[in-house]
């Protein structure tokens, strides 16, 4: 098992009409790893996430999950396999309560009520504010709280691979700090994570490895520490000149 990566993407191409958003991307994420994907706006980061979760179809290449080819599998079935995506912009269900949002995260599971209740408790341990807001409409919460809910909702599916798409987007600096604190906790729990971020510095600080995506191609990859020290990365993504 050890040599089969949790996620393996081979020469993946995704097109929107005539536009080639991904031009042959290959990456791997191994069990227990935190891997980050950094890159500027329009590099194709979100497209890659959607292609993994099945929201976007592949024009060529393969998506393998635990050694199984899932390139053509519909998105809802991938959730049952163990892929959970916390989408860009949070996308919680604002007209439903916090509890119902969390329960929708466990929608596909055939677990017992006691098991689900235990998992809810586990989320409250990481996100105590969700317990207080349990019966409130999710739409009434702040952006940062909604992001916490979106992560907890994804965790309710008991994923083997958690995809976090720009979790810090549009959040106040203090909230961003909280979110990265949560990501560190998830890492300590051994959750396999693929993190897409514009905040490259923080993302590389928490990750084991990283890839740099630019206009649909992986242009650099390596250990997070090495990438952080790389002068090209520092200039392009860490705001140093």
């Amino acid at each position: 098992m050890a040599d089969i990566p949790t996620l393996r993407i081979e020469a993946l191409q995704v097109r929107y009409g005539a536009v080639e958003a991904l031009k042959g991307v290959s990456i791997e994420v191994h069990a227990g790893e935190v891997v980050t994907m950094i890159g500027g706006n329009g590099a194709g980061k979100s497209t890659l996430m959607k292609a993994i979760s099945g929201l976007e179809g592949a024009a060529a290449g393969r998506v393998m999950f635990e050694g199984r080819d899932i390139t053509r599998m519909p998105g809802h079935q991938r959730v049952a396999l163990g892929i959970a995506q916390c989408p860009e912009g949070r996308q919680i269900f604002p007209d439903q309560t916090v509890r119902d949002n969390l329960m929708l995260g466990a929608y596909h599971r055939a677990a017992s009520a006691a098991q689900i209740a235990a998992d809810l408790e586990a989320q409250f341990a990481v996100f105590p504010l969700l317990r207080e807001r349990l019966h409130q409409s999710a739409g009434t919460m702040s952006g940062g709280e909604q992001q916490m809910l979106a992560i907890a909702r994804a965790l309710m599916s008991r994923p083997k691979l958690l995809l976090l798409d720009e979790p810090s987007l549009g959040l106040a600096p203090l909230m961003v700090k909280d979110i990265f604190g949560v990501i560190r906790q998830l890492k300590q729990r051994g959750i396999t994570l693929l993190l897409v971020e514009q905040m490259a510095n923080q993302a590389l600080a928490v990750a084991d490895r990283g890839y740099v995506l630019e206009t649909g191609n992986i242009i650099m990859q390596g250990g997070a520490r090495e990438l952080r020290r790389d002068p090209r990365i520092r200039a392009a993504y860490l705001g140093e000149h």
Partner: peptide, 12 residues
Amino acid sequence: HNKNAATLMGIN
């Protein structure tokens, strides 16, 4: 409310 988000919940 949101078909993509619903798909990500495993809803057909």
